[in-house]
Write a protein that binds this DNA or RNA. Structure first.
Length: 617
DNA sequence: GTAGGGTTAG
């Protein structure tokens, strides 16, 4: 038996003396198991901490055999063990039901267990049952779990109700509850109340400070978050920020583009012994990525001792944002090899950005293999992926089978229909969504306006464009204007489109003018085209599109000399046309090529090292 | 002495 422990239990964080003192069945009763329930409670805690369900089950068996499982301490420890190591609700409820005495701690374990496993509604049901059937009075532990449940549900009314209970019982100076309350109000964007709770604390600790900073960041109040951070760092308070604080503050700095301060914070974190902290490192990486400094981000990533899904996602997200899809693809290969536990949502998003259907399907299979299902983030990403790869019917099939859809899911499908030329279905879906009481956002309107422009629904498009600002208070962005310019100029209402751009705050955005200029060729309008091209050349003299598009307009109306003049002007000014690039898959290898390449003569390169077979213009 | 807070990405 001792040999068994040596061989199989040496890597266990459980102290060996504790395992051994359970007794050895082969010793034939010479070493009797200890009968003290207290010892068993400690053992169960150790197993829970060590994450060893095997030991937990072993101890449970001993307890049942020796009839000690009716002890109150032991029962509660068992409940905690099963909830943490085996969150199977059938099992947990069996343990709960079989407890001889259900005290406040047993009920609180259930409430907080449900919160921890992501079932806040179940948690609140248990809380209510505890008051109704248990006839027990909630303590500070129970209330902090209840506040967290309402925070997770985004139910500020329930949260406020618990706040009342906290206040009446005089728990409002409790730091644990206060940080939950700050979080609860902050995540529901009731910032005044979050700040009030925080400001009423006499000596907030590092976690309370992190809570307020975190909710300010969450609500995009980055400057305020920094102010709080600097107040927290005042010497007289002697509060030491930990990894969580650094991570949160790094988000604010990344969003503000304050690289220098980000670097300083990273350096300070290292000197205060937080080097190698995965939260600090990942958030530093993300800060660089958000500021577009991908080389620095990559450097942090390469030097990290431990990486987790977040580190991978931050790096992938950075490359995605920089539209460096080759880097994403390369990373994806490395990630597969290292078999990291990565976030399916982000990887699928990268696949969708690349229109990499094969990799996307691999991820989808992997997701199904690990038994993942009903995750709304992943399912939305799958809808997006299949729609972007042109498999719009399959995307719709997935969409129809999703039981819980959120705004992101709807947006993915609306945009999916729109991008695949199914304008009418996109508009129909948009209306369905509104009917179901889901409030469309910035992205939803991009989808529906895109659909209108590609289906020629001028009247509807104009109506949605107005409704966006008037009914939903969304300020039209450059994407919405792009759709509108496209919508108007496709049907030949070029002057109207020109007016729209001139009156928009994006009149200096050459992408809008380019959309209009492109349509001038179709509608043979050199008059508008000349005005627009002149405007574009003023904005960006070296932007090739204004020259190329104007030359095209001249060609369509037969003004060949003018077209030649434009080409000449391009040469004189040294403007070059950027080659279009794309990639195809041949024999499971990805091959990148440029618009000027001759496909027949192309040499295929392995996807791990995407190099171009280039003969640029 | 069995139950509890804030954490980086999308």
């Amino acid at each position: 038996m001792k040999r068994f422990y040596k061989r199989y239990c040496s890597s266990s964080p459980l102290p060996q003396s504790q395992i051994l003192c359970l007794g050895d069945p082969s010793s034939n009763g010479r070493r009797r198991p200890s009968k003290k329930p207290l010892l068993y409670a400690t053992l169960l805690q150790a197993a829970t901490k060590a994450g060893s369900l095997t030991h937990g089950l072993q101890f449970h068996a001993h307890l049942v055999k020796s009839g000690l499982d009716s002890d109150r301490f032991v029962g509660n420890s068992l409940l905690s063990l099963y909830f943490k190591l085996c969150p199977d609700f059938f099992v947990v409820h069996r343990v709960f039901e079989s407890l001889p005495v259900r005290d406040v701690i047993s009920w609180t374990s259930m409430v907080s267990g449900y919160v921890r496993t992501g079932h806040p509604l179940e948690a609140l049901r248990m809380f209510v049952k505890m008051l109704a059937f248990g006839g027990l009075e909630p303590n500070a532990f129970t209330l902090s779990a209840a506040v967290k449940a309402s925070s997770d549900l985004g139910d500020v009314r329930a949260g406020r109700c618990f706040h009342g209970m906290v206040f009446v019982r005089g728990f409002d100076t409790n730091h644990v509850i206060a940080s939950s309350l700050v979080n609860m109000y902050g995540r529901s964007s009731v910032l005044e109340d979050a700040r009030r709770v925080f400001e009423e604390l006499l000596q907030p600790d590092a976690i309370c400070w992190t809570s307020i900073i975190s909710v300010l960041t969450w609500n995009d109040e980055f400057g305020e978050a920094l102010n709080f951070f600097y107040s927290m760092m005042r010497k007289e308070l002697a509060i030491i920020p930990d990894g969580f604080t650094c991570g949160t503050i790094m988000t604010a700095l990344g969003n503000l583009g304050r690289v220098r301060q980000g670097k300083e914070t990273h350096a300070r974190a290292i000197t205060s012994g937080l080097s190698g902290n995965v939260v600090v490192e990942s958030s530093t990486l993300d800060m660089y990525a958000k500021c577009g400094l991908m080389q620095d981000a990559q450097k942090v990533f390469d030097q990290m001792g431990t990486r987790n899904a977040v580190s991978w996602c931050a790096l992938l997200g950075g490359y995605c944002q920089a539209k460096n899809y080759e880097a994403v693809l390369r990373l994806f290969r490395v990630m597969e090899k290292e078999d990291e536990s990565y976030s399916f949502g982000t990887v699928l998003r990268a696949c969708a950005g690349l229109a990499a259907i094969r990799q996307g399907k691999e991820v989808h299979c992997r997701y199904l293999r690990i038994g993942g299902w009903r995750n709304v983030v992943v399912e939305s990403a799958l809808v997006d992926l299949y729609a972007k790869c042109g498999l719009v019917d399959y995307a719709h099939h997935l969409f129809s089978n999703i039981s819980i859809r959120n705004l992101i899911t709807w947006n993915a499908m609306i945009c999916g229909f729109a991008q695949n030329g199914r304008g009418e279905q996109a508009v129909e879906l948009f209306n369905d969504m509104v009917k179901q009481g889901i409030r469309p956002d910035y992205i939803s309107f991009i989808g529906v306006l895109f659909a209108c422009s590609h289906t020629g629904l001028v009247h509807e498009g104009k109506r949605y464009f107005r409704s966006m600002t008037e009914d939903y208070g969304i300020t039209a962005g450059v994407e919405h204007y792009n759709c509108m310019v496209d919508l108007l100029s496709r049907v030949g209402r070029l002057e109207e489109a020109e007016d729209l751009i001139n009156n928009a705050k994006y009149e200096n955005d050459s992408s809008l003018w380019a959309a209009l200029l492109g349509a001038c060729a179709t509608h043979s309008s050199p008059g508008v085209a000349e005005r627009v091209a002149k405007k574009m050349m003023e904005l960006e003299p070296r932007y090739h599109l204004s020259y190329v598009l104007l030359a095209n307009v001249y060609k369509t109306v037969g003004r060949w000399n003018d077209a030649m003049q434009i080409r000449k002007l391009m040469r004189e000014r040294g403007v070059r046309k950027a080659p279009g690039k794309s990639w195809i898959e041949v024999d499971r290898r990805t091959c990148a090529y440029l618009g000027s390449d001759n496909v027949d003569k192309m040499e295929f390169e392995d996807s791990d090292d995407l190099s171009y077979t280039v003969n640029s213009i």
